[in-house]
Computed example of a mutant assay.
Amino acid sequence: MSHLELSRPRPDVAVITLNRPDKLNALNFGLVEELHRTLDDVNDDELCRVVVLTGAGRGFCSGLDLTDPFPDDASRGLPFPRSSMRWQERIAELTVKLSTLRQPVISAVNGPAYGGGFALAMASDIRVASPSARFCTQFIKLGLGGCDIGVSYTLPRIVGAGQAFDLILTARTVEADEALRIGLVSRIATGPVLDEALAIAETLCDYGKFGLESTKQVLWANLEAPSLQAALHLENRSQVLSTTTGELTAATSDFASRKKN
């Protein structure tokens, strides 16, 4: 049985829906592996320009399914603790995949985003919340360290170190309104959150193919830029390369045509 749905509301937009609604789309081995395969396939799809990630039912993703231990094949036949490390690394690789995917990823957070679900949302490029969305790092509540699946890297860069330390150490729940106020999400949907995410996707698809792809790459790369000068070097090269695609000429002509009318 598939734990994930892939749909294409238009040829250049892929909607990935985590589909374990009875478990609030909690991550088990099957869902993790399906998500890896789907992200790999989407990354190789030259028609796809934007990815929307959401959850089925009333939740986005409630984190790791603690009632569904990973099967033997997840451990690759290795003894503990190496087996657990392989499983840990496999889950954590999802955040790397989302951030390095060629296409921008919009998380349409339609309900609870806890633990691993929180991490997936933080690894996305844009986060849109429904009024019922709730966010919680959760890890430290489970007797684990609070830093997991990339949140110690992504969260401080989204909301700042002070807010991130608070959210990770206390593992308190953040409602949609506070999430917007502290910059955890960029907007709260006034209608169905998936519709809001698809409207953003439509806007992005109107932009140049190279420009959109390179913008995501530069944004993530410059999170680690050692200086303004280093960031400018990367921006400058990306801009010059973008002039070779013909998209600048087309956009300029379109703008001039609309201005005359």
Results as ranks from 00 to 15, higher is better:
residue 134 R to A: 14
residue 184 L to W: 08
residue 201 A to D: 01
residue 222 N to E: 11
residue 195 D to Y: 01
residue 182 I to M: 02
residue 103 Q to W: 05
residue 189 A to V: 09
residue 163 Q to P: 13
residue 110 N to M: 09
residue 131 P to E: 03
residue 171 A to M: 00
residue 178 E to K: 02
residue 188 I to F: 08
residue 120 L to G: 13
residue 173 T to P: 00
residue 89 E to H: 14
residue 128 V to M: 05
residue 134 R to Y: 06
residue 170 T to F: 04
residue 113 A to F: 14
residue 188 I to Y: 04
residue 149 I to E: 05
residue 101 L to F: 04
residue 190 T to Q: 14
residue 199 A to F: 14
residue 183 G to R: 12
residue 151 V to G: 07
residue 105 V to K: 12
residue 154 T to N: 05
residue 126 I to P: 04
residue 88 Q to E: 15
residue 184 L to T: 02
residue 210 F to H: 10
residue 166 D to R: 01
residue 136 C to N: 12
residue 116 G to Y: 06
residue 139 F to V: 09
residue 181 R to A: 15
residue 122 M to W: 00
residue 138 Q to A: 08
residue 158 I to C: 05
residue 221 A to C: 11
residue 178 E to F: 11
residue 162 G to L: 00
residue 120 L to D: 13
residue 218 V to Y: 09
residue 192 P to I: 02
residue 208 G to I: 06
residue 118 F to D: 09
residue 137 T to E: 12
residue 143 G to R: 13
residue 215 T to Q: 13
residue 195 D to K: 00
residue 191 G to Q: 06
residue 138 Q to L: 15
residue 98 L to T: 01
residue 112 P to N: 11
residue 87 W to D: 06
residue 130 S to I: 01
residue 129 A to W: 07
residue 139 F to R: 12
residue 214 S to V: 12
residue 190 T to N: 15
residue 210 F to Q: 08
residue 141 K to P: 04
residue 152 S to C: 06
residue 185 V to C: 11
residue 154 T to L: 05
residue 154 T to R: 07
residue 113 A to L: 04
residue 212 L to Q: 11
residue 156 P to F: 04
residue 164 A to T: 01
residue 189 A to P: 03
residue 214 S to D: 13
residue 198 L to E: 01
residue 115 G to H: 03
residue 125 D to N: 12
residue 133 A to G: 08
residue 88 Q to T: 15
residue 191 G to V: 03
residue 175 E to Q: 15
residue 130 S to G: 13
residue 202 E to P: 00
residue 92 A to M: 09
residue 96 V to K: 09
residue 99 S to H: 07
residue 130 S to K: 07
residue 208 G to R: 11
residue 147 C to R: 10
residue 191 G to Y: 07
residue 221 A to I: 02
residue 149 I to Y: 13
residue 100 T to L: 11
residue 200 I to A: 10
residue 94 L to I: 12
residue 212 L to K: 08
residue 188 I to A: 02
residue 152 S to F: 06
residue 189 A to D: 02
residue 165 F to P: 03
residue 109 V to D: 09
residue 166 D to C: 00
residue 220 W to T: 13
residue 152 S to T: 10
residue 172 R to E: 00
residue 187 R to K: 14
residue 90 R to F: 14
residue 191 G to M: 03
residue 206 D to L: 14
residue 203 T to I: 11
residue 168 I to L: 01
residue 222 N to R: 04
residue 163 Q to E: 07
